[in-house]
Design a protein around this nucleic acid. Sequence first.
DNA 1: AAAAAGATGCAACCGAGTTGCATCTTTATG
DNA 2: CATAAAGATGCAACTCGGTTGCATCTTTTT
Lengths: 144, 144
Amino acid sequence: MHSQDVVLRLEEKGIKPTANRILVYNALAENERPQSLSDLEELLVVMDKSSIFRVLALFEEADVVHTFTDGRGIIHYELCGSHGACSHDDGHVHFYCETCRQSFCLTEEQLPAVSLPEGYTQHSLSYVVKGECAKCRKRRGISE
Amino acid sequence: MHSQDVVLRLEEKGIKPTANRILVYNALAENERPQSLSDLEELLVVMDKSSIFRVLALFEEADVVHTFTDGRGIIHYELCGSHGACSHDDGHVHFYCETCRQSFCLTEEQLPAVSLPEGYTQHSLSYVVKGECAKCRKRRGISE
DNA sequence: AAAAAGATGCAACCGAGTTGCATCTTTATG
DNA sequence: CATAAAGATGCAACTCGGTTGCATCTTTTT
């Protein structure tokens, strides 16, 4: 995605495209996996943690990113629309590898919807499978 | 559940039934909703936080409880089998109310299973819907 | 050009989760 | 039964992801 496209994308969401915001957007766009705040701190050493945090909060508010918490409770951020359809109640399953502690998107799997009880309203939804990814399993020799 | 039943239940899972462990078990059994560590601290003022933590870790290891993280990333503990079938990959949806910040079990909803990519192994799974519960929605007058 | 609004960095804080260590309790052993 | 070994507990301290107050810098408005 070209820098100019990012600018347009942010503007269409009502967000002023500052340098920092473009950096955060690109960091998310360039990584196929959902990133945590700590991940982004490493990727964006020029930015302060609090600035990254505020950009992410803004992005979430404007539905530019959506979030989910992995097996340890750490928030991960992912661009809306990065793997097919999106919005806050967008649609795919995440996998958290308990060995390498990374999160993946299972893009093949669409999220099965559930019907809520009377009076409940849904804002977003997350479906996370915890286990071990293929790479880690292979590395350990498929024993066990 | 009688005290003696709790003892048997723990022993059958290979856990020595100490006073603290029975307290934690009962605290979980007496509350229909999944409890966080902080919740349990309030319920069990006689116990130290670290002791509660270690009991919960032991329980999880022995499949006495399972966990999931709510919308804020806070770990919640629930007795296995407390709402129908169980094990680590047990089966119901959780709802996190962003207004009252409480978690509920949606016992009517069975968890739709997903098939993982080749080589991935599943240990547990969580499906959390974020939104507003019926009580909070009513309290606010169903405006919006 | 000056004032107002917004964005950023720094430092400090918060709270859930976790750990080291000394003490107390229970279990195993002579 | 006495003692040693193993296990459970409480206390205090620490980690780290997340969050906030505030001063400064930048952009926009007037």
